[in-house]
Design a binder for these strands. Structure first.
Lengths: 139, 139
DNA sequence: ATATAAATCTATAATCAATACAATATAGCA
DNA sequence: TGCTATATTGTATTGATTATAGATTTATAT
């Protein structure tokens, strides 16, 4: 899928973020690459197209997006944080063999107990680990 | 609750881990302190009692425990990994204001879709973020 | 017991994602 | 045009974790 810069800029403006060129490019990357990339991967890929891009800008931009709920941080394990364009109601499965992160549908609201009634829940994450079908059949 | 070293040693032997003195002390700490400590915190606390203790030993021991399913890694966010003595069917809620991590009961199995039928699931984690009642009432 | 091998542990150096910071560039506006 | 705030760059620093090599302890056999 190809996204128009104007549409991406509007998403940023909606969240009260000034649509600078670099911010548009980072968000475009997140929307086009639903591969749960790390900040490093985003930087390495965009650097080819934008030679002046700085790593600090990528980190700053991603932090802005997370605060604005445009993106989510995935911290299944490892030291590396991964980023995900926001979609509701899905969990992440990380294959311990090939490292791929898969999305799957889940609605955690169905199994929350009243224990959390007095808590303000802002973010819900479900992380599974194991072996994906492809790796499992290769054993 | 106080645990006998002999009982802790048996838990280790059950998981095919040799019950060295330091390993017993680390497991004892995890069982007695259900506060989701970091490796640093465990090290700092045990160091008082065991002056020769090395940080590397704490990391090695925790890694052993995680592999043996005696402990779980909690990676809600931050760079710091936290450790939790294994208990089934509970999620973690991190307060964005005070940083405390709370346990709550949840049974994710109830809301898993058939999407994951072909995946071997070895570990399930549920992480919530938000504001705890105490911090909320202080605003 | 003593020797030998295996495991555990220590201490320190290295790694590397993430952050902090100071300097520069750009955009918005009177 | 100049002024101010924001955005970006480039580099230095941080800090949790890992790697490593050597020392110590434990287990086993002779």
């Amino acid at each position: 899928m190809v996204y128009k810069h104007k549409d991406i800029a509007e998403k940023l403006i909606d969240r009260h973020i000034k649509p600078s060129f670099h911010r548009i490019k980072v968000l475009e990357y997140l929307m086009a690459n639903r591969t749960h990339p790390t900040a490093e991967q985003i930087f390495a890929c965009l650097k080819k197209e934008l030679p002046t891009l700085s790593k600090a800008t990528v980190y700053n931009t991603l932090k802005l997006f997370v605060e604005a709920k445009l993106a989510r941080e995935i911290t299944i394990e490892d030291k590396e944080i991964r980023y995900d364009y926001t979609i509701e109601n899905h969990g992440h499965f990380k294959c311990e063999s090939c490292g791929t992160i898969f999305d799957f549908k889940i609605n955690v609201d169905d199994c929350i107990t009243e224990e959390l009634d007095d808590f303000v829940i802002k973010d819900k994450n479900v992380y599974f680990k194991g072996i994906c079908p492809r790796c499992f059949s290769n054993t």
